[in-house]
Design a binder for these strands. Structure first.
Length: 207
DNA sequence: TGTCCGATTGGT
DNA sequence: CCAATCGGACAG
């Protein structure tokens, strides 16, 4: 894992839009101990004004504290009593915006991922937010930790050019009213590792 | 303390 | 299409 160079802190410069960061995270590497994967799918959650965001309306609870913390840290929560979802906090403390990591292309520790995921094909190991957390061994005990150092971190990898990025509405946010259709899901065009086949509402990767 | 629900997944 | 499964949020 030493071969991976950790992402520089200025990746999370205050002036960067969370959607820009969501796109720039594509192609980067997520490492946890002996496993690693290339990010191929993300979603942006824009804080207090975004009905799909956990912090909508300024909601703040113990579980959400990491989301209100410094950028470059993880916000991990348990969903449906059995799966975990990993988010990367994108803005300075007090500004609860983040990027949900939805799929990875496995690149290290494939045997471990296969065992943990119970999946037969590598394309499925990390295809979905719950699956990738299971494959990398991530759970809420890691919520709040920095992703810029330590055994759990983000590495530079190679950013994906805009021409190779597509966007669509976010998945599973029908409860978000007027915000449910915002095209803030980003994924690598043609990647067989994304969580689901691109739907019909694909748009250019803009906002 | 009691009830309700979910940024998912896997099986029917 | 639907059940699994439980922590967290909130009402009382």
């Amino acid at each position: 894992m030493d071969a991976f160079r950790v992402l520089e802190p200025d990746f999370f410069a205050p002036e960067r839009d969370t959607r820009e960061i969501a796109r720039d995270l594509l192609g980067r590497i997520l490492v946890h101990e002996e496993t690693a994967g290339r990010i191929v799918e993300t979603e942006a959650y824009l804080g207090v004004t975004d009905r799909a965001c956990h912090a909508w309306g300024g909601k703040r609870t113990p579980r959400l504290e990491p989301l209100y913390g410094p950028p470059g840290h993880a916000y991990i929560y348990l969903i449906y009593g059995m799966y975990h979802c990993l988010n990367v906090v994108t803005k300075p403390a007090g500004q609860p915006e983040c990027v949900l990591i939805r799929a990875l292309e496995p690149i290290a520790g494939l045997e471990i991922m296969a065992d943990r995921s119970g999946q037969a094909k590598a394309e499925r190991f990390c295809a979905g937010p719950g699956r990738l957390c299971r494959a990398l061994g991530l759970d809420r005990s890691l919520s709040g930790v920095s992703l810029l150092s330590g055994p759990f971190f983000l590495s530079e990898g190679s950013p994906v050019p805009g021409s190779e990025i597509l966007s669509s509405p976010r998945v599973g946010v029908d409860y978000a009213g007027e915000d449910k259709d915002r095209p803030w899901r980003f994924f690598v065009k043609g990647s067989p590792f994304v969580s689901k086949a691109p739907g019909k509402r694909i748009t250019p990767a803009d906002w």
